[in-house]
């Protein structure tokens, strides 16, 4: 996140902030891993990956509790202000979003295991595109948190819109497929829920990015369009359809 210049005079404060931050980053990588494992398991028909995603969700839950406790303690002990205050609050909010991402991953994994037991249907591979978008969004959101790249953060809002569009189209396609292939109704329903989970994961990525922008710029950019948000944080609006790097 931000370049904080001087370290805190109080070394224990400095250490506590750093610990909490490292925990958020570790948690982020596990949550990302879970999402990848769940969907990869589905796409590569590897139930083992799915099981891993389900098992690892506990780890993420533990991290959320740890981070909340640490944040709470920092607030109580050191009375942080300004960027420190924003960082602590953002860390806790990011942890909460990551936990939900991991929940979505678990949910995807459970449904994936059921899908894998049933007959293979061709539409499964259509999930890959939407998964790629959601997964890259999450990865970028974590980068926004770790590096404070505001511009990248703002681009996520736009990409979420595209994710929504893709998600609506895929749901429509799958609904039509149900009509054609009624015996596989259950499998299609599982797929629909999985798509929905991916869309949710995208939303959480956006939340993480927005919270990280708040930590960086003290500007609340939630619920506004990208031009407005760009003006508020004081940067040029990124190319409207840019997908970042």
């Amino acid at each position: 996140m931000p370049d904080n210049g001087l370290p805190h005079t109080l070394a224990s404060f400095e250490a506590a902030l750093k610990d909490a931050r490292n925990h958020v980053l570790t948690m982020a990588s596990i949550a990302q891993q879970n999402l990848d494992n769940a969907v990869r398991g589905l796409l590569t028909r590897n139930a083992e990956l799915c099981n891993e995603a389900i098992a690892e969700d506990d780890e993420v839950n533990t991290y959320e509790r740890v981070i909340d406790r640490e944040g709470f303690e920092i607030l109580m002990r050191f009375n942080p202000v300004a960027s420190d205050l924003r960082e602590v609050l953002t860390g806790m909010k990011v942890a909460s979003n990551l936990e939900r991402v991991s929940d979505q991953a678990e949910s995807i994994a459970r449904r994936a295991r059921k899908v894998l037991k049933a007959t293979e249907i061709p539409e499964i591979q259509q999930i890959e595109a939407i998964y790629e978008t959601a997964s890259s969004m999450l990865r970028d959101a974590i980068r926004v948190y770790s590096e404070g790249d505001v511009e990248l953060g703002l681009s996520l809002v736009e990409r979420d819109r595209e994710l929504d569009k893709a998600h609506r189209k895929l749901i429509k396609d799958l609904t039509k497929a149900i009509e054609r292939d009624t015996p596989n109704l259950k499998v299609y329903l599982h797929l629909i829920f999985i798509v929905r989970c991916l869309e949710r994961a995208g939303d959480h990525a956006v939340n993480i990015a927005e919270d990280s922008i708040f930590a960086e710029k003290a500007a609340d950019v939630r619920h506004m369009d990208i031009d407005e948000a760009a003006e508020k944080v004081g940067i040029k609006p990124p190319g409207s359809s840019s997908l970042g790097s």
Partner: peptide
């Protein structure tokens, strides 16, 4: 504003305990 998002680095460093 001063205690959430001061505009000067020195202010931020002082209020968040980074002096010295």
């Amino acid at each position: 504003r001063i205690f959430t998002n001061p505009s000067k680095r020195q202010t931020e460093d002082y209020i968040s305990g980074r002096f010295g």
